[in-house]
Write a protein that binds this DNA or RNA. Structure first.
Lengths: 196, 196
DNA sequence: GAAGACGGGTAGACACTGTCTACGCCGTGC
DNA sequence: GCACGGCGTAGACAGTGTCTACCCGTCTTC
């Protein structure tokens, strides 16, 4: 099935995914997406009444891929009989890996000013994954009185690290390019030193 | 000295600061800033060759205010004889407080796509403050082998919390609006439980 | 089988943006 | 007294997102 066969809605989203991967958020103009999909600038309006709704559909694709990547990484770790701490390790690395591999898409996913409804609907799809996160954290901290808060704190740390790297603030502060030491520090802080 | 007296450069920056406070980043169009400063749309070009440079000057104001707020909070805490842990507590709260009180400015400051030179020059001004951060963290963790990494990890956590709140993801995940439990969790994780 | 309705894409207009360029004005220095 | 230079104005230009009129192929219905 070629691009020409699929309905325009899917083609537009696919064009957006491709454009954001190569040119970043800046390349996601409505007319540019339409051009890349081979239609006139008015065509998208049939499927996406506004530019923001088209961008939200593109970001939705990103959220899907992110949850897939995380679920895959966790399944892999769980398959080898890893404990909760190690599975969280794998999840964290998968999260940062996704952000590093798809910087444009990652930015779009969290640019609430570009997404219809601030993207709240989209982020809702990640809730189930977050809950498995909470379960793992509760396993690491059996006596925690609020594992959800602890998990949210850890997640926000991962997110901050992802941003820190994309800004190139790492070189500024630590002198190096690598997030690895920061990631280890964050995981150790939130989950205790790795068992090894 | 009224707005009319000051030179246009300062007036434009002041107009931008005001606009971003009331209307967010979206209100920072070049022509809108010029209108707000009472000049034609071509006037800013004399002082800022490009829109991004004007935005960078506005963001610079924001970085100045942030460092002032942080330095003030730290001086206050240090003045009462607080220990390093408590001073970091105050700094963290001041950071989140600034982000909450100036959401538009905070967003602008870290929107590298809007700032000339990605804003690297601007963030460089926060380095001294970061170093005092490092000193305090080293005081809390005397046996840490890389206090800079630990500090960067903590800072990225604070930044992630600030974003988490502005997106309204808190309600989605923890059910509440308050960052306080997440902040406590983050500080406890990175610095150990509060001494009290 | 002919005709009407309609979904879906085209194309132009509109107001707006940031940038570029030509022009005019006003104060200063020779 | 006058040329000059800094500074702001105003219009043009290409580009944007949105809106609207149109058009054309397909499908339904008599």
């Amino acid at each position: 099935m070629t691009d020409q066969d699929r309905d325009l809605r899917a083609r537009l989203v696919a064009a957006g995914v491709e454009l954001v991967a190569t040119g970043g958020v800046h390349a996601l103009g409505l007319r540019e997406i339409a051009r890349h999909a081979g239609v006139s600038h008015g065509a998208p309006r049939r499927y996406f009444p506004t530019h923001r709704e088209l961008l939200a559909a593109i970001a939705q694709q990103g959220f899907g891929r992110l949850t897939d990547a995380l679920a895959g990484a966790d399944a892999l770790a769980a398959g080898t009989g890893a404990d909760a701490r190690s599975r969280l390790d794998a999840l964290a690395r998968a999260y940062l890996g996704f952000a590093a591999a798809n910087p444009g898409m990652f930015e779009l996913m969290f640019r609430h000013d570009l997404l219809e409804g601030s993207g709240a609907e989209l982020r809702r799809t990640t809730v189930p994954l977050f809950l498995t996160f909470v379960g793992l954290v509760a396993e690491v901290h059996p006596d925690s009185e609020d594992p959800a808060a602890a998990t949210a704190a850890l997640w926000s740390n991962l997110h901050g690290l992802a941003q820190l790297r994309t800004w190139g603030s790492l070189r500024l502060i630590t002198g190096g390019e690598d997030v690895e030491p920061l990631l280890r520090a964050a995981l150790d802080a939130h989950l205790g030193p790795a068992t090894r």
